[in-house]
Simulated scan of single mutants.
Amino acid sequence: MTTHAAVLGWPISHSRSPLIHGTWIAEHGLDATYTAIAVDPDGASLWFETFAEHGLVGANVTIPHKETALSACDHVADHAARLGAVNTLWLEEGKLHGTSTDGEGFMANLADQAPDWAKHAKAGTALVLGAGGAARAIVDALLMAGVDRVILLNRSVDRAEALASHFQRHFGSSRIVPGPLSRFADHAGEAGLLINTTALGMEGQPPLDVPLQSLAGGATVADIVYTPLQTPLLLAAKEREHPIVDGLGMLLHQAVPGFERWFGVRPKVTDDLRQSVLADIQEKSIS
């Protein structure tokens, strides 16, 4: 009996999830499908409340439905409840379960591309730029992984303070410190890991302008942007001989837990898969 899963969003035609999961389905010879389904926001609440009627064993959820999907779940992972959003759903004994794999995907990609990042003398402190949904998932994952302190900087300091306050209630006030992005140079020397979670540096956006010379020597630099694969930030960090981590791996690794949950096989993130997704990105950017 064919097993069906999907990615749900609005719009959804840009999603690379069908390519990623389709590659794994073919590799493992599974009797399964993975498609993209556009869910109109006007009917999203009912769609997720009746999830079991759509013939899917599970799904990925992307913008703008991550919060709506969470509200429809019968069971939500603790960290996803903290984040206030889910990106992975599955049915279990007729009940809808939800979790978020974004943070897990980031940490797996970090371990894959910079396996020695935690050996840096200042790895106990991470410097995170941005205060949106990606920052929320990554900060949570870092704190859960045992990073002692996260310095959270954002152009709008009010948003950084609000996000910091949220995590301080769960992890304590000493473990997350908010501030304005303009204070980058004051904090950069304290961190063994720098992460850009903003859209700055993405194609069509201005570059992230921060004084990398202030960063501790040998600190790892990660960017969640993957178009282009090597952003101006990563190119500048590479020139200064910092280990770098691009954003494509996070996209790939966050897909692994859902696939394993739905289809019973844990897939691998390979260089061939990376190249296939990169080729698709380049083809669509040209067209």
Rank of each mutant, 00 (worst) to 15 (best):
T2F: 08
T3R: 15
A5R: 09
G9E: 04
W10Y: 15
W10R: 12
P11W: 03
S13A: 15
R16W: 04
R16M: 15
P18D: 07
I25C: 00
I25V: 06
G29C: 08
L30V: 01
D31T: 12
D31K: 09
I37E: 14
A44Y: 00
S45P: 03
W47G: 01
E49D: 14
E49S: 15
A52V: 09
A52R: 13
H54S: 12
G55M: 07
V57K: 14
A59Q: 03
P64M: 07
P64G: 10
H65C: 02
K66M: 05
T68K: 11
S71Y: 00
S71V: 09
C73Y: 04
H75S: 11
D78T: 14
D78K: 12
A80G: 10
A80R: 05
A85Y: 00
N87C: 01
W90T: 12
L91A: 03
E92I: 03
E93S: 15
L96D: 00
H97V: 03
T99M: 08
T99C: 13
S100W: 00
T101G: 05
E104H: 13
F106S: 05
A108L: 00
N109D: 15
L110Y: 02
A111D: 15
D116W: 08
D116T: 15
A118C: 10
H120D: 00
T125N: 11
V128I: 12
A131Y: 02
A131R: 06
D140W: 01
D140A: 14
L142W: 04
G146A: 12
V150I: 13
L152Q: 01
L153R: 06
L153G: 03
N154I: 00
R155E: 04
A160K: 01
A162I: 05
A162C: 08
S165T: 13
S174P: 04
I176L: 09
V177Y: 00
V177S: 12
V177R: 13
P178Q: 11
S182W: 00
F184K: 11
D186Q: 14
H187S: 09
A191G: 03
A191E: 01
L193D: 04
I195F: 01
T197M: 07
T197F: 05
T198C: 05
E203V: 13
G204N: 09
P206M: 07
P206G: 11
L208S: 04
D209T: 15
S214I: 06
T220Y: 01
V225G: 05
Y226T: 12
Y226E: 10
Y226I: 06
Y226R: 11
P228D: 10
T231I: 09
L234I: 03
A237M: 03
K238C: 07
R240S: 11
I244L: 09
V245Y: 04
L248N: 06
L251P: 01
H253F: 11
A255M: 07
G258D: 05
G258S: 11
R261C: 04
G264Y: 00
V265R: 12
P267I: 05
K268G: 10
K268Y: 02
V269K: 06
T270C: 06
T270P: 07
L273G: 08
L273D: 02
R274A: 04
R274V: 02
V277Y: 01
I281T: 07
E283T: 14
E283M: 12
S287D: 12
